[in-house]
């Protein structure tokens, strides 16, 4: 469904600093009905990869495909994105953020009833008139979750989706992701949480210093010990 080939990004060199590619010849394949876990330490290049995929950052090299055709702006409307932090319009209410997001994706207005329904699904109905700046971190995550799902996208790109959620929210999001994968959606899950990735993902791919260092299909070759993945994640000398 989504294929990234030889993707690279080098940010403009700052004076006195040696430039290093944030992303170096990374390949990625996300199929329908599959959850792909993208793991890596801080600064590994996960967020850069997501931003390139979403068209926020221009790649230095590589090609991107959606349904075997070059990824164009129109196709990006089929991607739902849940950003890492509370990256929403702070002075707008939950309902306004949701309506604006829907309108930017689809070009149509979101009715009050549908907005309320979407907010109810993530437990934010009572807070719909609250400004984002007045929300707690967990509530902000729930709103971002509603926004990622509002247009029923084919692909979900989630950057640290569980961070800041309370235990109930984590269970609900976990269950919801499982249902989405079963319904044939493709899910790209960026996370530091290895156990969570193992419980949700069909495949995992690890980035280190902008390079792909490990990937495994967990359906055909389940990991006997989660610590094995942890070792790839942490120890440089064990990386492939």
């Amino acid at each position: 469904m989504i294929e990234l080939k030889n993707l690279g990004k080098t940010y403009t060199k700052e004076v006195g600093k040696k430039s290093r590619p944030a992303l170096d010849a990374v390949n990625l394949l996300l199929k329908e009905g599959e959850c792909l876990g993208l793991l890596g330490h801080n600064g590994a290049g996960k967020t850069t990869l997501i931003r390139i995929l979403l068209g926020l950052v221009h790649p230095s090299q590589g090609k991107m495909f959606f349904d075997e055709k070059p990824l164009v702006r129109k196709a990006r409307q089929k991607i739902g994105y849940m950003p890492e932090n509370q990256q929403l319009a702070a002075r707008l209410t939950c309902e306004e953020n949701l309506k604006l997001h829907y309108s930017l994706i689809s070009g149509r207005y979101l009715s009050h009833d549908l907005a309320c329904k979407a907010l109810q699904e993530v437990g934010l109905l009572d807070h719909r008139k609250k400004k984002v700046s007045d929300l707690s971190k967990g509530m902000g995550r729930r709103l971002a979750w509603a926004m990622a799902n509002i247009s029923d996208p084919q692909i979900l790109v989630l950057d640290e989706p569980f961070s800041g959620l309370d235990p109930l929210g984590r269970i609900e999001l976990h269950r919801w992701l499982g249902e989405k994968v079963k319904a044939g959606k493709g899910v790209l899950l960026c996370t530091h949480e290895i156990k969570l990735a193992l419980s949700l993902c069909d495949r995992v791919q690890i980035l280190r210093l902008g390079k792909e260092c490990f990937q495994q299909d967990l359906r055909s070759k389940p990991l006997s010990d989660p610590a094995e993945l942890e070792s790839y994640f942490i120890h440089e000398d064990q990386a492939v």
């Binding site: 990006r76 929403l88 930017l104």
Partner: peptide, 16 residues
Amino acid sequence: AKSSGGVEAQLSTAYP
């Protein structure tokens, strides 16, 4: 909006 990420969420929708 750029530093807080509000732009990022809005432009991730592929809006020009």
